[in-house]
């Protein structure tokens, strides 16, 4: 007779490793839930958190970054049933997990595939290494809600960037669930920041933000040309990411190449 009343979840943002509500106090209804509707200021906070966390993430050993990313897969694997409820089902969750594992394995292989030593006509050891571009903004595809987000967030992440991602607008719950997975894995706070809200409102703020180095506008539902124009303010790298793709060149889109001339002599 007295059936237990379940405790409901409050759906919040994920910024700097914490779960704040939107500073604006706004929510919007999606998938039958009230979800935080991030504001311009939330975007700025998320970018600040990302910038703060990025150097340490990039400075971790590649082996370590690979293990941390693999740990995300472990966390999701343990909650497959919950994630399956929030996307197209078990298959999407399993593909997302496998994609994370695939990218985790790239962390310590990128320099060998993307860089190398260069023969120059002089007494120098000349080599090129890939390095993260810095803070990357991602407009996640609207569908699939989990796999799309994983597909777009992992490539910049594995390369040592910090990410500010805006979740699928209509189906944001999988992203929030993923944030909880990230919080319980070993990804340092601020390395991945997930916002929920309206793409049309948040995308231009990210595209014109002077402390964002690259933006993936694959999931933009507004005017992509306008976002590209705004991105020119600080010569951002603009990526048109696809929702379901898996390739090291996806990682390369968010990397810079540094060439060093080291002297040789006795």
């Amino acid at each position: 007779m007295s059936e237990r009343l379940p405790v409901r979840k409050t759906y919040k943002l994920f910024i700097g490793g914490s779960f704040p509500r939107s500073e604006s106090g706004r929510t919007y209804e999606a998938e039958g839930q009230n979800v935080a509707r991030a504001s311009r200021k939330d975007v700025r906070d998320a970018v600040r958190a990302a910038r703060g966390a990025q150097p340490k993430w990039a400075g971790a050993t590649a082996y370590n970054r690979g293990q941390v990313l693999y740990r995300i897969a472990e966390m999701i694997e343990a909650r497959v049933a919950e994630f399956a409820e929030l996307c197209s089902g078990r298959d999407e969750v399993e593909r997302s997990i496998d994609r994370i594992v695939w990218y985790a394995g790239w962390a310590d292989k990128l320099p060998q595939v993307l860089g190398g030593s260069n023969p120059v006509a002089g007494p120098y050891f000349n080599f090129t290494v890939p390095e993260p571009t810095g803070v990357v903004a991602v407009l996640a595809p609207h569908d699939p809600p989990l796999l799309g987000l994983v597909t777009r967030v992992l490539p910049p992440l594995v390369g040592g960037n910090a990410v500010v991602a805006v979740a699928s607008e209509d189906r944001p719950l999988a992203a929030i669930e993923l944030a909880e997975g990230l919080a319980t894995s070993d990804v340092p706070g601020g390395v991945v920041n997930l916002l929920t809200g309206q793409h049309a409102e948040l995308a231009p703020v990210l595209a014109s933000h002077m402390d964002v180095n690259a933006i993936d506008i694959g999931g933009a539902n507004g005017d992509a040309s306008e976002l590209e124009r705004l991105a020119a303010d600080n010569v951002k790298r603009v990526v048109h990411g696809r929702a379901d793709v898996q390739s090291p060149w996806e990682i390369a889109s968010f990397l810079e190449l540094k060439t060093v001339w080291h002297p040789m002599g006795q």
């Binding site: 260069n118 120059v120 090129t128 600080n234 010569v235 810079e256 190449l257 540094k258 001339w261």
Partner: peptide, 30 residues
């Protein structure tokens, strides 16, 4: 994008050249 150690303004067709941040994107060379 380019760091010279104990030298400066060296160029080579095999050595990629190009910028970070507002110095541009893409590489020339190599």
């Amino acid at each position: 994008g380019v760091v010279w150690a104990n030298t400066f303004n060296r160029f080579d067709p095999g050595s990629p050249f190009g910028g970070y941040k507002e110095s541009g994107f893409g590489r020339e060379g190599g």
